[in-house]
Write a protein that binds this DNA or RNA. Structure first.
Ligand code: MN
Ligand code: MN
Ligand code: ZN
Ligand code: ZN
Lengths: 136, 136
DNA sequence: TCCTACGATCGACTGAGTCCAAGTCAAGAA
DNA sequence: TTCTTGACTTGGACTCAGTCGATCGTAGGA
């Protein structure tokens, strides 16, 4: 993610201050922020950035594969800058904290062909749920 | 799910026509409906039923463990009457169709203790994504 | 049959996200 | 360097999913 700005320039993106601060926010903390949290952090550096631009930029980063969308609850989507290292998520049912986890098996291998119903299955995402040490 | 009404009565539920039609809608089709779809089907039998009542009843059924909430996209939650047979979901990225699937392994077993960060992990839900035969 | 607490209703409200018309500016051309 | 232009940004209105609360209705017990 560190040379994200270079990769974006290479794809013909016009480099604006808004896009730069959004990329910097995501680059800075490897956490899972909502769009409004990204907006709040971006606005600390560039006070007049709009929510619409944050949504636009996040959407573009997602379709470029630079950022992942995570929807673990029915609430706001979260944006995951750790897109180049495959992983899954462990969510605390108490406080909502999300941690990256790395199971030892690819769950795709556990779905037999007769359970695929003719689908071209390309991805398996696992959400583990439980209580974190603080909430237990 | 067939004697759901009996179980609810046993739990002290007041049996109203609204709760009956919501339970019948869920009982009738083993698909994954949104709250508004449940409302539309319920309203075919009981035209005056309100959205608020459908939301209330679905929420109660979920906390009783009779129905599962599924949030595969960032859109409306879906309600799964198949709560007594553990399974996972296969979602078409094209049209959004959802199918129940049964992997051969429990993904909980694939999460080593050093990847649990002190959490009490109780559940693992897998979402497989791909293209259905029609969308491929 | 009557009573009443539990449930249903409607509409106002919230939160998350989208859309659009109008204004701005990054970056290539000259 | 300045000009030009279309890509980008903005604020606000709007949509969609869901929640809340005051008031009304009724299931089911006495
Ligand atoms: Mn992550
Ligand atoms: Mn299901
Ligand atoms: Zn917690
Ligand atoms: Zn499809």
């Amino acid at each position: 993610m560190s040379d994200l700005l270079e990769r974006l320039r290479g794809r013909g993106w016009r480099m604006t201050s808004q896009r730069r601060v959004v990329a910097e926010v995501l680059d800075g903390e490897h956490v899972h922020l909502t769009a409004d949290e990204v907006h709040a952090r971006a606005a600390r550096r560039l006070p007049e950035i709009s929510r619409a631009t944050v949504y636009n930029t996040l959407g573009e980063l997602v379709s470029l594969g630079e950022v992942l969308e995570v929807a673990t609850d029915g609430r706001a989507k979260r944006y995951d800058p750790n897109a180049h290292h495959p992983h899954h998520h462990l969510v605390c049912s108490g406080c909502g904290t999300i941690r990256d986890v790395h199971p030892t098996n690819d769950p795709l291998a556990d779905l037999p062909v007769e359970e695929r119903f003719g689908f071209t299955v390309s991805e398996a995402e696992v959400t583990y749920r439980g209580l974190c040490p603080d909430c237990a």
